[in-house]
Write a protein that binds this DNA or RNA. Sequence first.
DNA 1: AAGTGGTCTAGACCACCGT
DNA 2: CGGTGGTCTAGACCACTTC
Lengths: 235, 235
Amino acid sequence: MRHKYEQVFHALEEEIVKGKYEKTRKLPTEDELMKQFEVSRNTIRKAIEILDKKGYIYLVQGSGMFVREFSREGAIVVNNMKGLSRDFPNNTINSKVLELKVINPCEDIADKLKCDINAKVYYVRRIRFLDGEPFCIEVTYFNKDIIPYLNEEIVKDSIYRYITKDLKLNIGFADKAICCDKLNYEDAKLLGLNEGEPALIVDNIVFLSNGLIFDVSKAIFNYKYTKLITSATYK
Amino acid sequence: MRHKYEQVFHALEEEIVKGKYEKTRKLPTEDELMKQFEVSRNTIRKAIEILDKKGYIYLVQGSGMFVREFSREGAIVVNNMKGLSRDFPNNTINSKVLELKVINPCEDIADKLKCDINAKVYYVRRIRFLDGEPFCIEVTYFNKDIIPYLNEEIVKDSIYRYITKDLKLNIGFADKAICCDKLNYEDAKLLGLNEGEPALIVDNIVFLSNGLIFDVSKAIFNYKYTKLITSATYK
DNA sequence: AAGTGGTCTAGACCACCGT
DNA sequence: CGGTGGTCTAGACCACTTC
C-alpha cells in the first residue's frame, strides 16, 4: 500500500466489491479519478490496469470503464497465489500433514527445481479440507538451500506466511499446468472417492522474485468441489 | 502492429523465440532498448510489460530482465484466445460439424448470454481432431442478434476469423471456468474413450470489446492429450 | 557508488464512441 | 462534435542489486 497506484487500486476495488457501481456499472472517468485522488493520469491508469487484469472491469475506448459481473463464489482464481483462504472466505479450511521429511529429489523433481540430484529438499504431503470435506491433496518439494527449515507446525499452518514474513523471501511468480487424470487407489481413498474417478490436477513451479525456484508442487483436487476460474483477452 | 510498443514487443518476442538470449538469458537494459528502437522509456516498458504478462520474461528490480524457460510444447495457453492452431503449430487440426441450428436458448444459456429466452441463438456442436485423434468436443451458443448468419462452411473453418474479418466485430475478453467430470456415453464415444472416464471441461463466456456477450461455449477435452498452462503472480 | 528497474508527473496528440 | 480512453514523450526521483 505504499505506492499511490496501489492506494487508488485498493480504494476502487473496495468500492466495486461493496457494490458502489452496481446500478450504472460505470466507473468515473480518468479525469474525475485524477481529481478525486489528486494523482497524475498515468497513476490512475496503472491502478485501472490492475483492476482490468484482475477481471474487475473492462475498458471501452471512447466510452468508459465498466464493472464486470463475474461470480468468484466457490471458485479458485487460478492466477492468484494468495491461497485457498482467499478463494473461500466463507468456508473453513483445514490441513492435515501426511508426510514431512528431507529427501534427495528424484531426477524429475531435481530437474524442475533446477537443483542437483544430491541436494536436499523438503518433501511435504498434505490433505486439505473444505468445511470438513476432503478437498485437495498437495505434494510439495522445497529447495532446502532456500527454505532451510520446516516443521509440522509451520506446514500445518500457512507455509507462505512463514516464507514471506519469517524468512523474508519475496515470492514472484509461478508456472501452472492443469490437467486431469484418473485417481489411484490411495489418493481416491483420501479424497473419499473411488479409484479411477476423475481428478483435477494442477502442477506448479514457484519462483522467487529474483527468478530462483524454491517450490515444485502438485495439487490433486476433488473434482466434485473444484472449479478454477481465469480470464482471457483477445489482444 | 501499428503502435510502436507493439513493434518493440514483436521484435523482442521474435528474438526470444529464436533463442537470441539463450546463453545469457538477460535482455538489454531499458536504456539500451530505448536507443535501439528510438522510442521513449514508457514505450519500452509497455512492450516489456506484455512480454512479462505473456510469461516470456521476468523482471528483477535493480538487476535486469531475464528470459524464462517455459515449455509451451503440446500445451494450451489458457489465457490466449487465438485458437488451437496457435497452441499446436506443428500439428494438424481438423474439425467436424456435428450439429448446427437456430434454437431458443434454455434458461441457463439465456442467462449466461444475457439474452431473452425467446431470442434466437445459433447452436453449434463440433468435434476437433489433433493429428487425426479426437481431441475436443465443443458446444457453442452464439447470440443471433450479434452473429446474424452462420453456415457449415464458416463453422467448419475458423469462426473467429469470420467474426473479426467479415463481420468486423471486435472480440474483447472471456471468462473461463475449468473443471473436470466423468464422460457420458455419447461424448466418450466421440472421443474414443469409455463412459465414466475423466474429461477436462472448459466453460467460456466470450465478450466483444464493448462488453456485449456473443458466445457461450463448453469444450470437453480428451484428458489424455490435454494440458492447460498459465502463469500466476504473487503481487 | 554505479547500474538498473519502479514510481510519478505534466503535457501532447490520436482513435473511438455516442449524440 | 464533445467526451473518453489509448499512445507517446521527456524528465525527475526512488528502491533494489551488484560490486
